[in-house]
Amino acid sequence: MPLTNLNSAHLTAAQVTAAQNALADLENALSAVNVNLTPEDRQRYGSINEQNKLFVNKVKDYRTSNPNLSVSDVDWDEFEKDFASRRVFDSLINRLDALSTKLKGAKILHDYDNYQSALADYAYTSYRAGTGADGYETKYNEMKQFFGRSGKTTAPPAPENP
């Protein structure tokens, strides 16, 4: 017998609404800084790697400790704002990524539970269709399309988990 009900925790309607409202609030709060880069822009500007982050941090450290050694051609106020924004965005991204990973895990367990229940229903439908019970042959014929046609297959392919 397969394991089922791996995740029996479900959000209430009020919790779903609260989460959706919180996401809408977050989207609104961040709308001023949202930028949709084209694939070409992403390629052109990229993301600075760890070595270059260390370089930027070193320049900031020098600017903070020895401002007289900083070039006057740089808009240092903007540099500071960019630096602060980068830190905030990095923190937000890390928190959102962690939340996304947890939500994906919960979804995977619910997907698995649904799949196992669907397999049980299909097995029962197959049995009932074999006995000639009313309606089951039609249901069976509509459901069997999800199963392989070569050889004898007793279950559809396992669900994909993103």
Rank of each mutant, 00 (worst) to 15 (best):
L3S: 09
T4N: 02
L6N: 06
L6F: 03
N7E: 05
S8T: 14
S8D: 06
H10G: 02
L11F: 13
A14L: 06
V16K: 03
V16I: 15
T17D: 13
T17H: 02
Q20H: 04
N21V: 13
A22D: 08
A24M: 09
E27S: 01
E27P: 01
A29P: 00
L30Y: 06
S31G: 09
A32D: 15
D41V: 07
R42I: 03
Q43W: 01
Q43I: 05
R44E: 02
G46C: 07
I48K: 02
N49M: 10
Q51I: 12
K53N: 07
L54R: 05
F55L: 12
V59I: 13
V59G: 03
D61R: 12
Y62W: 09
R63I: 02
T64L: 11
T64P: 00
P67W: 07
L69E: 06
V71D: 14
V71E: 10
W76A: 02
D77Y: 15
D77A: 15
A84C: 06
A84T: 12
S85P: 00
V88M: 12
F89M: 11
S91T: 15
L92T: 09
I93F: 10
I93L: 13
N94W: 12
R95L: 14
D97Y: 10
D97R: 13
L99D: 09
T101Q: 07
K107T: 14
K107I: 09
I108A: 11
N114L: 13
L119N: 03
T125D: 02
T125F: 04
S126W: 05
D134V: 15
G135R: 14
K139A: 15
Y140M: 06
E142G: 14
Q145N: 14
G148T: 02
T153K: 13
T154W: 13
P156D: 03
P156C: 00
E160H: 00
